[in-house]
Design a protein around this nucleic acid. Structure first.
Lengths: 113, 113
DNA sequence: TTGACGTATGCCGATATGGGAATACGATCG
DNA sequence: CGATCGTATTCCCATATCGGCATACGTCAA
């Protein structure tokens, strides 16, 4: 039941570093599998497997080109992620401040001991 | 070796829906574990385990308060995620267009058959 | 100290994952 | 058709994960 209910959603897909690498690489344009694999230093089956996951969540799109299959980026699925994370934007600096004051409190307390 | 080299990074931490729920909830302020667990409908050990993961990647911060432990949000770790995903912002609409024209091509081709 | 409460940890089972190797599939070319 | 190239799939192993349950730990109160 590992990572239950998460399997095959976008958050899960981008949780794997190699898949993030693939996506980043595809920003430069479509690429056949072997090319991807070689560029990123993974085996062909390895690349195929990761591409499958990315395909299943819709982050990637395939196009047949002779013997080859050109994988291209379809970044639309990343938008919800961006929005979800963006919902915390307000707290980035605030957390900073809160932690700072927290540390201040600790110092204070320590001095009082 | 599941999710190799990913374990305990922020992307992995937010890949789990319940952990995202916890983070979202903590935007409203600090909360003790039992409270979190009850609110989100998970068991206490379950909540503790997820909180541990969040703690280990630094998305959450603990403060002792008597018998209780108050967990608070530290969203700073989400910033890199936001930036990484933001690197694809340009492609959201572009992908749209490309897919559209791709679909057009398919229709065209089909008509020519 | 004992007991109660809040929380963390340990152990277990079921499942899923990533990696490697072998192989099957599909298309092109001779 | 047969051979070859590019890719997907399958099988197996090691490992990690989540969930549930029991239990240990720490703090406070009586």
């Amino acid at each position: 039941m590992a990572r239950a209910a998460t399997t095959s959603d976008v958050f899960n897909a981008i949780a794997e570093p190699q898949r993030r690498d693939i996506l980043a690489l595809l920003r430069a344009g479509e690429r056949p599998v072997n090319d991807l694999a070689r560029t990123l230093g993974m085996t062909q089956p390895g690349a195929s497997k990761h591409l499958r996951v990315l395909r299943e969540v819709g982050l990637v799109q395939v196009r047949e080109a002779g013997k080859q299959r050109l994988y291209g980026l379809d970044a639309r699925g990343l938008r919800p992620v961006h929005e979800w994370v963006g919902g915390f934007e307000r707290f980035w600096n605030e957390s900073f401040d809160r932690l700072d004051s927290y540390v201040q409190d600790l110092k204070q307390t320590r001095q009082e001991d």
